[in-house]
Design a protein around this nucleic acid. Structure first.
Lengths: 156, 156
DNA sequence: GTGGAGTTGTTCAAATTCGAACATATCGGG
DNA sequence: CCCGATATGTTCGAATTTGAACAACTCCAC
């Protein structure tokens, strides 16, 4: 190969701005959830996904794919949420290997109690900072990133 | 308070797309760096920041602020990089409490060796997916997020 | 100067994450 | 029907990260 296509000033600005902002945003969301609900962001995402799923349940693999976490990472977190009584494990009817993570009633309550504060932070630190056009751009761009980043890999 | 301003469909789409994409992107960058250079993304960011700093050195606090990591997290990582011979600690001339993290020659070499592969991934999964307009939007938006997320806090 | 308030960096324990190895179960071709 | 190739979840050990507690130092008002 001849040479690397380095990032020019604008491209570098975009990458560093993205990195810094995403780290900070993640940190703040984490802080808020821990303080107000004793939950990790990962745990909240799991509860939210389950809540939106048909019958409030999902296969482990599907859930891991959705929240973008490793299989072992999900096993661990489901274990934690089970201890808290927010999630239960059920055997999968159609596949004996499978395990279903099921949101309990307490899990639903916890989510309903926690969601307002969470949404507030997400608005303050991202959504309400965007014009409608920018919102569309974020959706478009991030979907492109997802597609590119998922190309040629599995669940992780 | 009366009620929560929930996220409408577009806003929700933006948030979930952002979350998914950022998790995946981080994962891929991490994979590439680990495989090609045995480095963590956090470690690479530290090397890059030091490389761009005057005299290739920065105060611990300043560095922690830049890469958005906790003080203790930085202490740990600088320890790791020191073991690898990529960074050294120096006492701060102007402040006896201070510690300077200094990029070594080996650190510079490591960075030069590693940067091309890293830039390639960053291009493939983000930069090259953006039109010039979108690039500008990302910079603008992410800087806004940074400002909002830093409002009223310290280094973390 | 001096004392108290604030900074700076490290140490410590706890929590989370990942990948690799593993046991179990499904599925398609012969 | 049966075997190898895949897929699914869990377990394990190692690495990383965080916040709180701590020790050392600076700085300002008095």
């Amino acid at each position: 190969m001849t040479g690397t296509r380095w990032l020019d000033d604008l491209e570098m600005a975009a990458w560093t701005a993205y990195l810094t902002a995403s780290h900070l945003l993640e940190r703040r969301v984490e802080e808020q959830l821990k303080a107000d609900a004793g939950l990790t962001h990962a745990q909240y995402e799991i509860l939210a996904r389950l809540s939106a799923a048909p019958d409030r349940r999902l296969r482990m693999t599907e859930l891991a794919h959705g929240v973008v976490v490793s299989k072992s990472g999900l096993t661990y977190q489901i274990g934690q949420l089970e201890k808290m009584g927010l999630v239960e494990r059920a055997t999968c009817p159609s596949d004996d290997r499978g395990v279903l993570a099921v949101l309990t009633d307490r899990g639903t309550e916890c989510l309903e109690r926690t969601a307002p504060g969470h949404v507030t932070v997400v608005r303050e630190l991202l959504i309400d900072l965007l014009t409608p056009d920018e919102l569309e751009t974020v959706i478009r761009v991030m979907n492109r990133v997802e597609t590119a980043a998922r190309a040629g890999t599995r669940t992780p």
